[in-house]
Design a protein around this nucleic acid. Sequence first.
DNA 1: AAACAGACCAACCGCAACTAT
DNA 2: GATAGTTGCGGTTGGTCTGTT
Length: 430
Amino acid sequence: MERRSPGAALLASSSPEEEEEKSAAAEEGRHAAMAAAEQQQEEEDEAAVPVALKKGPWTTSEDAMLVDHVRRHGEGNWNAVQRLTGLLRCGKSCRLRWTNHLRPNLKKGSFSPDEELLIAQLHAQLGNKWARMAAHLPGRTDNEIKNYWNTMTKRRQRAGLPVYPPEVQLQLALSNSKRCRFDEFSNVQALDAAASAAGYTSSRPAPLDLARQLAATSQMVQFLSSPPPAFSAPASPWPAARPFARNAQFFQFAAHHSSAVSPSTPDAPGGPVAGLRRCRRPRAAAAGGGAAALLPDHHQHQNLNAESLEKMLQELHDAIKVDPSPAASGGGGGVLERRHGGGGENKSGGQHRDDDMDTLFDMMIPTLNAPAAAATTNHSGSTSQHSNDDQEPSAVDLAVDLQATGGASSSAQDWGLDGVCQWSNMSRIC
DNA sequence: AAACAGACCAACCGCAACTAT
DNA sequence: GATAGTTGCGGTTGGTCTGTT
């Protein structure tokens, strides 16, 4: 079901009755507005009292007036709209209304799976730069993307799932690893301090976070590569709880072995399933039906995902000069060997996992120029709308890369595979 | 049927950058 | 260079709808 704004209704096709009603209303509104404008002009002439501008939802007639104005005068000079048309709206409001609802070629409705994946990729690259993200999604507005993202992250946060799909996490780690070197610091504390000093903000994952993601992802690859364990959980009220249960299982697994989960992770009462029960199904998946649409079966993509993720992981390891050794028996995580500095003897057994993590963290060091690279996301908080796409890697390229590496479509909403909540990226919604 | 919680979305607000004078 | 006006962006809020209890 889709709700329509008055503006959308104006542009969308509708019945003749509705059209008539609308045109009549528009005409009436025009006259009323003209009269109001005249009266307002008189009042301004007399007393120069600022007219009280209207707030709240736009009416059809207001939309018609705005559309008419833009048709005559073009976009821009929004403050003149009120003066020229008598619309009792401020220029800001007019611009917003036009941009988000009235301008042509707006794409209404649910985001497609491709769009959702692209949004995730763009967010991983840009952070909360909605306008720049919108530039990559024709017909979509920054507001729309922002609303989608906030809703989606909120939902996934409640479910204890990571914000980004695994392929995006890995791609992110991969791209950042090229900025990392591993000979300057020797411990996690130093990493944290360095990342902080380097100006990493919550809108973009610091290399340390990425290292943790990588560590978790490494385990995830193995998990995905293994045959699905027999599902023996109690009967779920959810018809399609099985894939979710697997994800939840991995979440527990990864959360147990990863330090990236925030202590404030909001566990919904009764666990993730209970936390999801009230979640409205994503609109994009509405046609899928049932809870399966919220967390659709991931199995069909598992082999592909595992394969592509493993490939990307290998690439990542290469990039940071880490040798992935054969999996430690029963440990889940590959034992990493530091090539730099002579390496060390291979360890086996779960008791060494923390050491391995530390080793990995040691290798994911932010370079001094990392902030400069990351500065495409302006840490000052200012926007850089006039330097659009100047330095940042192309999101399209990223998408292509992902496809080339066999990344599965994000139509799978079950991004809950590594169990590492991206808290560094979620501060805005916490 | 009513109450409630959550999702969705439109719109507003404050701030910063840009432009014109 | 200073100032005012304009534009754009991101965060936030509030209303409406929907599903659940």
